[in-house]
Write a protein that binds this DNA or RNA. Sequence first.
DNA 1: GTCTATACAATGATAGAC
DNA 2: GTCTATCATTGTATAGAC
Lengths: 195, 195
Amino acid sequence: MARWEPDARGRLLQAALDLFADQGYEATTAAEIAARAGLTRTTLFRHFADKREVLFQGQSTLVSTATAGVRSAPADASALEVLRCALRALADEHVPAQQEIGRRIDAIVATSPELQERAAAKRASIAAAVADALALRLGDPRPAGVLADLGVRAYYDGFAAWTGPRAGEPLAAVVLEELAALLAALSAALDPADA
Amino acid sequence: MARWEPDARGRLLQAALDLFADQGYEATTAAEIAARAGLTRTTLFRHFADKREVLFQGQSTLVSTATAGVRSAPADASALEVLRCALRALADEHVPAQQEIGRRIDAIVATSPELQERAAAKRASIAAAVADALALRLGDPRPAGVLADLGVRAYYDGFAAWTGPRAGEPLAAVVLEELAALLAALSAALDPADA
DNA sequence: GTCTATACAATGATAGAC
DNA sequence: GTCTATCATTGTATAGAC
């Protein structure tokens, strides 16, 4: 029998979601979150570097997943196929149970500049990881960066659709479809004669 | 004759650059920066919302500049031409005197995750401003977002080249050239048959 | 209108006990 | 792994000085 209740991190996330939704992010102290999770403030900061990371804990592995996803692509894959491998790897990190949590997190992040800043940093880290891994494969940082931006945009927009109207479909399918839509939109925008 | 030395913000920036380079960002307190600028801690926080903004003050107008740049484009301009208008507007915010400061800021930001987070948030804000303004013009958020990413990447990469090896050229020219290079790299990556 | 003095809540780090 | 306790610093709020 364990000396402590298990899953301290998950309990802290639930507590934070409840309190932030109730009182707002700024009005909620780290001590309150910890208390609601049955812990102390010190323990919260043992698990997370700061108050924001309680909310973003689900994204902590995405950077290494993105890198691994690029490296997992077959040796003869095209640049676009490599990008799709990375997106599939990222999408596989999420299960439908996270859709509800994702919605709640998004709603809270939208209320706080401090949280939006952390969200932007996370997205930038993932984009940089994809860009670096792709640059290594392609031998050229320019297409790598552009493709990484495209892929990360598809991933975020696809994730948003998956937590909303397209909750029933597999995340990977939604994301890859979004990537195709972005590429088509880009072609159309760059070559207006297509109209 | 003025009662106080002018340009408090500029003096705070100089003080921060010196101290951060000397002791590191974390080891430098807001009180030290203010003292070196001949001010008090209270006054620093009157001018800037937080310690990080002392460094990023030069980017405070870029979001509105980006929006204005998109709106300043001729009514019959293509999507790409509109994007170029925005980039020219952004580039015109900077003068060669900022090259040295830009280099010093970059070096310091590279040492601190907290500063990198702020930098990522600034970049994301500019990208979002361009994307929103473009979406309004194009009537479709998808190409707008992709083009905004492309443009912002060209702007940042161009700026980095301008503070380094291409210091002698006009920033706008470097950025627009970078945009062309990114577009060419993308085409080549998406259509490998071109080789 | 800009600067300063002071007090304050909260963050995040640290050291040591269970 | 958790807890108590303490500490410097951030960032805010409020007051007044030149």
